[in-house]
Amino acid sequence: MTDTHTPATQRVALVTGGSRGIGRAVSQRLAADGFAVVVDFAGGAAAAEETVAAISAAGGTALAVQGDVADEQEMAALFDRAEQEFGGVDVVVHAAGRMALSRIADLDLAALDALHRTNIRGTFVVAQQAARRLRAGGALVTFSTTVLAAQFPEYGAYAASKAAVESITLILARELRGRDITVNAVAPGPTATALFLDGKTPEQIDALAKTPPLERLGTPEDIAGVVAFIAGPDGRWVNGQVLRANGGMA
């Protein structure tokens, strides 16, 4: 189900990885805040259409478009489609990502290459398009991780990729001086998504839930609220920052 009718004054958000998990929560929150939302997905068209259907059922405007974030031609086409359907792009939320957990000594380097293709190259490609296409008053939001500070074992490859994401984000914020575009990263702590829960025992999940002082896992909606703040009018003075949304972890 797709609804592409949008008033000329409506702001437009493009969310990569918008079909499930945190990306879906962000897509739904931004739509509830009045954005027309382009939901990008790499695979799983059914999940993307479910996200669009939920947005439409709530009275919002959304469109699902397939595109590999690490493929510059597909991302250029994604931004083209957003501009064709809605007239431009005001907010880009880059929520697409990949995780591979392993001790550094044991990691299959093919898994490392796949992770870095999505998390580093993908972030760079999306950031390039955002830098070229975002309208004045716009925002780019990328995703890092609290693991950069927590330094959990088995997260070496993932944390390394997210360190690169933070560098790209903070440098781009400085490069866009004078454009009236904010660039920030959100670094979630343990958040109850399929990506996080996959492969963990109930005991591991319980231990991680007790790590923040608030003693619970975050929810996708918790993270979506932080993104909505940065992307909205109340977050315009936040620029070139990493916001650690983690319930009080270091």
Rank of each mutant, 00 (worst) to 15 (best):
A32C: 03
D33L: 08
D33E: 15
D33Y: 08
G34M: 11
F35G: 06
F35E: 07
A36R: 06
V38C: 07
V39C: 14
F41R: 15
A42V: 11
G43C: 08
G43F: 05
G43M: 12
G43P: 00
G43H: 14
A45C: 13
A45Y: 05
A46Q: 14
A46M: 12
A47H: 14
E50N: 14
E50H: 12
E50M: 07
T51V: 13
T51H: 12
T51Q: 14
A53C: 09
S56K: 10
S56N: 14
A57K: 08
A57I: 04
A58Y: 08
A58F: 10
A58R: 11
G60W: 03
T61P: 04
T61I: 15
A62E: 06
A64P: 08
A64G: 12
Q66T: 05
G67H: 04
D68K: 09
D71N: 15
D71K: 10
E72R: 13
Q73H: 10
Q73T: 13
M75G: 05
A76V: 06
A76Q: 11
L78R: 05
L78E: 06
L78W: 02
L78M: 04
F79P: 01
D80C: 04
D80F: 08
D80V: 04
V89D: 01
D90Y: 05
V91Q: 02
V92I: 04
V93E: 07
V93H: 02
V93L: 08
H94A: 12
H94G: 02
H94L: 02
H94P: 01
A95Q: 07
A96N: 01
R98M: 12
M99T: 11
M99R: 13
S102Q: 06
R103T: 13
I104E: 08
A105I: 11
D106S: 11
D108E: 13
L109D: 08
A111E: 15
A111P: 00
L112A: 15
L112Y: 12
D113G: 03
D113M: 06
A114R: 10
A114W: 03
R117A: 12
R117H: 09
R121H: 09
R121S: 14
G122Y: 11
T123P: 02
T123C: 14
F124V: 05
F124N: 00
V126L: 03
A127W: 03
Q128E: 13
Q128A: 10
Q129M: 12
A130C: 05
A131T: 06
R132G: 05
R132I: 04
R133Q: 06
L134R: 07
L134A: 09
A136D: 02
G137Q: 06
G137A: 01
G137I: 01
G138S: 02
G138R: 01
A139Q: 03
V141L: 03
T142D: 02
T142K: 00
T145W: 01
T146C: 00
V147E: 09
L148T: 10
L148A: 01
L148P: 00
L148V: 10
A149D: 09
Q151T: 00
Q151G: 01
Y155R: 07
Y155V: 10
Y155W: 05
G156P: 07
Y158S: 07
Y158C: 09
A159T: 15
A160I: 01
A160Y: 03
A163T: 13
A163V: 10
A164N: 11
V165T: 15
V165H: 11
S167K: 07
S167P: 04
S167H: 09
I168Y: 13
T169I: 08
T169E: 07
L170M: 11
L170F: 06
L172D: 03
